[in-house]
């Protein structure tokens, strides 16, 4: 479904990504972790073309993201993305957040869009809040709305860029519950996160990045039980210490 083939990227003289290659098969859940500044967020933002790459190739469902001729708008409508800071449209209520792109991009009728939105909002447990604005919701609720907004587009895959990093500890679980449910339902997912419990529970593979390189790309059980590189062993020992 998602093929990342030897991509490299620089910001000015700073090399953010170096020859990264990995892939996500249909229905697979891949978690990407690594220290700050290792390039994991940049990598995931390259997948739907939010960040351009200088070298290498990314294809999603056969469409070449890195080709300048590709219609990125069309591609992005088919890939869901959830951000660290939710990024809901602050001037629209929850319902309108979910309906906007359905109506303006997918040309669904108002009633189709509303029906879809209501069903998804119920699925993330926020039916009582559908007419509220994002500023009136907690962080966890906003992130669940953001997930529902992406799902409203019937995406072929979902990208998560540190979806729980900006949340209070109490709210992390409500968001992870929704993500686990999605994974169990067979959604193709690429998730940048430090939630190792989530990775153990639903990830098929875990990718470890450091200094712009993919250091390890392993099956989940091997990743935790048998880390090969000293850098990953060091990282795991630190984050699993408590």
């Amino acid at each position: 479904m998602i093929e990342i083939d030897n991509i490299s990227k620089k910001y000015g003289t700073f090399q953010v990504l170096r020859d990264c290659s990995t892939s996500v098969a249909k229905g697979e859940v891949v978690v990407i972790c690594g220290p700050s500044g290792s390039g994991k967020s940049t990598l995931i933002q390259c997948v739907n073309g939010l960040e351009p790459v200088q070298q290498g190739r990314i294809t999603v469902d056969g469409m070449n993201v890195t080709d300048k001729k590709t219609n990125l708008t069309q591609l992005r409508a088919r890939i869901g993305m959830v951000f660290q800071h939710f990024e809901l449209y602050p001037h629209m209520n929850v319902l309108e957040n979910l309906c906007l792109a359905q109506e303006k991009v997918l040309n669904r009728t108002r009633s189709e869009a509303v029906a879809k939105a209501e069903a998804l909002i119920e699925r993330v447990g926020l039916s009582d809040h559908i007419h509220k604005h994002p500023g009136q919701l907690s962080g966890g609720q906003q992130q669940r709305v953001a997930i529902a907004r992406s799902l409203a587009m019937d995406p072929i895959a979902m990208l998560f860029d540190e979806p729980t990093s900006a949340l209070d500890p109490e709210m992390i679980n409500e968001v992870l519950d929704v993500m686990v449910q999605l994974a169990t339902d067979g959604m193709t997912m690429m998730v940048v996160t430090h939630e190792m419990g989530f990775a153990r529970k639903v990830a098929d593979r875990v990718v470890f990045m450091d200094e712009g390189r993919i250091v390890e790309d392993r099956k989940t059980e091997d990743f935790f039980s048998d880390p090969e590189s000293p850098r990953l062993r060091d990282f795991l020992s630190k984050i699993l210490q408590y």
């Binding site: 939010l50 409508a77 990024e87 906007l100 792109a101 303006k104 990208l159």
Partner: peptide, 21 residues
């Protein structure tokens, strides 16, 4: 914030639509 623009693009909105809506 730049993130909001990125989110609108990720949602499938075209450049003009991101401005308009």
């Amino acid at each position: 914030p730049k993130g909001l623009k990125a989110a609108a693009k990720a949602n499938g909105l075209s450049g003009t639509q991101v401005y308009r809506y």
